[in-house]
Amino acid sequence: MAFIDDVKANAKSRMKTIVLPESEDRRTLVAVDQILKEGFAKVILLGNPEKVKADAKAWGAEITGAEIVDPASSDRLDSYVAELVELRKKKGMTEEEARKILTSSNTYFGVMMVKKGDADGLVSGACHSTADTLRPSLQILKTKPGTKLVSAFFIINVPNCEYGENGTFVFSDCGLNQNPTAEELAAIAESSAESFRFLVGKEPKVAMLSYSTKGSAKHDDVTKVQEATRIAQEANPELLLDGELQLDAALVASVAALKAPGSKVAGHANTLIFPNLDAGNIGYKLVQRLGKAEAYGPMTQGIAAPVNDLSRGCSAEDIVGVVAITAVQCQLYG
């Protein structure tokens, strides 16, 4: 069974409700059709019900069974306005401003649904930037208790691949932190290992990636990854984590034997921590486009409830997959 099929089966075991703010997007409505047919999540769409239904019909999407909520006329609006004013009062938020935000931004309204328990998680980003998705999440939901850093990862599933966990990997951070410090890289590694363990159900083997392996090159960028490795290992001595490793040393056993003999991670890594956002973003897109991999994300880790972003180049099938993963993440929150 493919990775995403396992995820959908897990999602079905404890059904969760996911809110999708981008009802104006064809891919979203086509995805909802498939989600409802497969029955692994309940769906709330935000928008004018008549327009959403008309668009769905025009695009051949059957969305009967999805709840459609118009933020401007919702009976929840007043309570959401009061909540937003309370949350942002130190920033000078007024009732008028809160009402304007919640009726003009479906994402803000959707995040408030998650905050108030009217939905379990949110998926957005098919036609909005990462900032548009994460800003309301951080303002309203805040960070998960004990979280050192909010970061973003992709679940990558490469067909017919002998590496990783039968071709399944976590790539991180590929969507949020531009140039993390050593301490931040260590926190990203810790969160990514937890995400791999929970979503894939296997033991994470974490590689701290660099263009150097075990001191083969000297540079401040290499030193940063070495320090991040030390911090992560000291904080998580039970975790299989090693670095700094070049990508081939992280994945290929024969290369690992030459470049990093004795490493328990080299040659077997399934959780790849990139040294900066440039490397992570380029890396996942190369594997997705040239390796024809399924790439689900960017998923967030560290927010107080599951809110996940989408690449604006995503397909309807990508949205289906991210909703399934989000639904399983929701199970971790209760």
Rank of each mutant, 00 (worst) to 15 (best):
S129V: 05
T130H: 05
L134M: 05
R135I: 15
R135H: 08
P136D: 13
P136H: 08
S137K: 02
S137G: 14
L138E: 07
Q139T: 10
Q139M: 15
I140R: 04
I140K: 06
L141Y: 07
K142T: 00
T143M: 15
K144V: 05
K144L: 14
T147S: 15
K148V: 10
K148Y: 10
L149A: 07
V150Q: 08
S151I: 06
I155P: 02
I155F: 09
I156A: 12
I156P: 03
I156M: 15
I156V: 14
N157G: 06
V158P: 03
E162S: 06
E162Q: 13
Y163N: 01
E165N: 11
N166F: 02
N166I: 01
G167E: 06
G167M: 13
T168C: 14
F169A: 07
F169H: 14
V170Y: 05
V170F: 11
S172Q: 00
C174K: 01
G175L: 11
L176R: 01
N177H: 02
N179C: 06
P180D: 09
T181V: 10
A186N: 12
A187I: 12
A187D: 12
I188R: 00
E190R: 09
S192Q: 00
A193L: 08
A193T: 10
A193D: 13
F196C: 03
F196Q: 02
F196S: 00
F198D: 10
L199C: 05
L199Q: 06
L199H: 14
K202C: 07
E203G: 03
P204Q: 11
P204I: 13
P204M: 14
P204S: 13
V206C: 01
A207R: 05
L209H: 12
L209A: 05
S210L: 06
K214A: 15
G215Y: 01
S216R: 01
S216P: 02
H219E: 08
H219W: 08
D220P: 05
D221K: 13
V222H: 02
T223C: 08
K224C: 06
V225N: 04
Q226P: 00
Q226R: 00
E227S: 02
E227I: 00
A228R: 00
T229A: 09
R230W: 05
I231W: 09
A232N: 01
A232W: 07
Q233A: 12
E234G: 04
E234R: 06
A235N: 15
N236Q: 12
N236C: 13
P237T: 13
E238M: 14
E238L: 14
